[in-house]
Design a protein around this nucleic acid. Structure first.
Lengths: 247, 247
DNA sequence: CGGTGAAGCTAACATGCATCAATAGACTGG
DNA sequence: CCAGTCTATTGATGCATGTTAGCTTCACCG
């Protein structure tokens, strides 16, 4: 199977968690790839799917619509399964939307089913991915409870930077995204105007310059300290610590 | 195995998801029960465990300590596994603390391992529980992004009421908890003083009276509407919609 | 019975954020 | 090249919430 312009996409979340054979096996679950445009709704709340999706390139949001406003409750980077829930729960309680152009891999549920039956290590890795999603959600909850708007934005970029680092796609001085200030506002639970002021504050403090979603900084450490970012919740220090006896 | 004062505790989250045989099987995973006092730290951040814990009676919080303040990022009710992560991730990125006196069931990882190998339906149900945790977390994120403090408190009680209803422990006119206003503040990400104002506002609006953690209301519907509570995210409408072909 | 500490409550002032209004810049399509 | 739309920016005003301080109520216990 060919993945145009993406290289070794499954370097993603499961990197170091699986051997090369298993990674290749997961890639073989993908029956086809697909491009989608910015803003396209990839998975709608309530629909029932026969396949799950892995993000190969670009960013996607998990969004919840409520009272004619949209809220972003999660972000995914390449290598993430974005709708494993659809496999287990069938219907989803939120939408999944492309932020900027994306490339997706489609994994039919039938192939996933076979994989789970025949490769216990795959099942383990997918469960790990689910637990990691939950850990990231908990961090967002704490971030929303604790931080003001400028720090929330800084924290989101710090988290993304670390997650990109784990898949070998981080840059020392910048982090390019297609996010608008409205997107940032919907992530932080503030108004777009206030998101603008928060971006302005990061600029004023000379911690980061955010232009059209792209963040530029000369000092990630200072930015991380300002955002009180500690990446331990990403469980990225070395290989998966599953009990070796399990399966 | 006897569970004093708890009755059919596993009516919990997996109710309707498993047959009676499987429920009995899960209960058999529990090697012993244990009581704990209010405030006791049941699982510490970073420790490595050889067993997982199921909550039999009482409430527990997931907490994250940061900058000499505590934040609550999740609540559990009887029937919930509270540290399945410990099984898959070994160490946890947060603490688990008793709110009020609790009864716990201890499930050694070795028995869990056997269960996952031999009973695919159990593995499926535990994965479902994990996905449900993530869905609840996403709802909290949206709640923090969208609602003001009085509505956040109302939403938390509405969610708990529904979750208790699912295990047959809900009451028509009240919801009794051991939560202090400080606890409510730590859930909502506001100061204790403001949590007090928020409680006062619910009283003033005649939506609910909250005294020492116990909520009394004559009109749950009005409270739910005020909090914009829609319980669809709890995936409780009928039996689990796993693909019947899977395993 | 009265002391003690935790929890709940109130007031006054400071700051964060929402909202409205208006404008400027950037991209897009005709 | 212009018009239209989406995005970014700024200022003014009011509400939501933080902070500090002090007070009250209640459960518990000596």
């Amino acid at each position: 199977m060919e993945f145009p312009n993406t290289g070794d996409f499954l370097a993603g979340r499961l990197r170091d968690k699986l051997g090369h054979d298993d990674q290749a096996y997961i890639e073989s679950l993908i029956s086809e790839t697909r491009e989608a445009e910015s803003g396209e709704v990839l998975v709608s709340r309530g629909t029932i799917a026969n396949s799950s999706t892995i993000l190969i390139s670009g960013y996607v949001f998990r969004t919840i619509e409520s009272g004619n406003r949209r809220f972003i409750v999660g972000i995914h980077v390449p290598g993430d399964f974005i709708d494993l829930h659809a496999f287990a729960l069938k219907r989803l309680d939120h939408n999944i939307v492309a932020s900027g152009p994306v490339t997706l891999g489609i994994a039919p549920h039938q192939r996933l089913r076979t994989a789970l039956e025949e490769k216990p290590r795959i099942a383990r890795a997918l469960w790990f991915a689910t637990l990691l999603d939950a850990a990231i959600h908990r961090k967002w909850i704490q971030m929303l409870e604790q931080l003001d708007a400028p720090r929330r934005i800084a924290h989101i970029y710090c988290e993304l930077h670390r997650r990109l680092e784990l898949i070998g796609q981080a840059n020392n001085r910048s982090l390019r995204t297609p996010f608008t200030q409205i997107d940032l506002a919907d992530m932080c639970g503030v108004s777009a105007i206030h998101a603008n002021r928060a971006v302005g504050k990061l600029r004023e403090l000379e911690l980061a310059e955010i232009r059209r979603g792209d963040l530029y900084t000369s000092n990630w450490d200072a930015l991380r300290e300002y955002a009180q970012f500690d990446g331990a919740y990403l469980y990225s220090d070395g290989p998966l610590r599953f009990d070796q006896d399990w399966l």
